[in-house]
């Protein structure tokens, strides 16, 4: 299993490169994970998406679909793709410390 070094701590990753343990996550970890995805600074809009992702994951055990994300996070499709280029659902799940979303939509 691969690991990542953040703030002097070694964190375990799953096969997709996402955090293996939800409990390892905090906001500083998120900032570092974001940098790894090419997002230098997390704005309030990024956080709105990240917090929504975590909320849905805690309720349902899976990250929301892109449709749900678009409809319920308060951030529309266009903005989602500009905040998280190259895949908003996948990237925001990773930064939120969640496993890769399982759904097709």
């Amino acid at each position: 299993m691969s690991t990542i070094e953040i703030a002097g701590k070694t964190l375990e990753l799953d096969a997709d490169g996402n955090l293996a343990n939800l409990s390892d996550w905090n906001e500083d970890v998120a900032r570092e994970l974001a940098k790894g995805e090419g997002i230098e600074e997390l704005t309030d809009r990024h956080w709105q998406v990240i917090n929504y992702m975590r909320k849905v994951y805690q309720e349902n055990g899976d990250a929301p679909s892109i449709r749900k994300l678009t409809k319920e996070s308060g951030v529309d499709t266009k903005e989602l793709y500009s905040l998280f280029p190259k895949g908003p659902a996948k990237k925001s799940a990773k930064i939120a410390g969640l496993p890769k979303p399982k759904g097709c939509i």
Partner: peptide, 18 residues
Amino acid sequence: KLDIPPVREFIEMIHDAG
């Protein structure tokens, strides 16, 4: 049930996604 949108919404989504 699977959160697959109706055709119009789906096409708008794909378009908005670039």
